[in-house]
Amino acid sequence: MTAMHPVERALDVALIVMRNGGSTVLADRVFGNILKGFKRDKVPTVWRLDFVAATSIVEGRPSTIYRPVGVIGINLVRASGAARLSERVARGEIDTAALDSEIERVKTLGVPYNRRVMLAAGACTAAVFSQFPGKDWGALGISFVAAGAGQFLRLLLQARKMPVAGRTFVCGVLSACIAAVGLRLNLSQAAPWTMIASVVYMVPGLPLINGFIDALSHRFLFVGLERIANAVYIFLILAVATAFASTVIM
């Protein structure tokens, strides 16, 4: 076993966290836990949203390993699984020889909700959001249908690995256009809330959460700010999609 092996395994597990919606704080803790399981001290690491670099001493010479982060998706069960695995490794409950198979097991953990549940959650979240200004059955119906259709398309495009920005815009335009048609037909008078509710299922909650967690930790301030900037960018895309639908249809 080379000296780089523990660092590589630790990066593998930490990257599962990064790629599945975990914060950089959590990824760094996972990295440290795995090294602890190998009885190794923490090594200097650079965390970014596009790559992670860790330096180790191999045969008396410093050696740096880079790993691309790649596309960041959302699967908190997998991120949580990686965090638990690292804690078990740190406590010595998992033999380091069995770690590779455990990493593969965590990588295969799926999203806990199937397509239908995600579709229903998107539609219902939008319908609930539309009711905050007051009971309005028209707004509820419009938001439910608009968000449901948008979420359906979003899941399809997600399966085809379409980039986030394009996917958000296309689904945002579809949802906002359906909402605008409903408002044009006078099904509801609460125009701004209904339009916003129709795209609320795409609000970038996780990048915002992780951005604040990273930024508040101070150690990952720039990664956190990058995540927050990404979230603002998604908000901007949604606003442009909504404005486009309002201008064209209403």
Binding site: L76, V77, A121, C124, T125, Q131
Partner: peptide, 22 residues
Amino acid sequence: VNSVLAGLLAGGLGILLTAPLR
């Protein structure tokens, strides 16, 4: 009523964010 709506919204967002069922 508003609080129940907020609870439902929070639960829905939890699902959309793929939070574990528990």
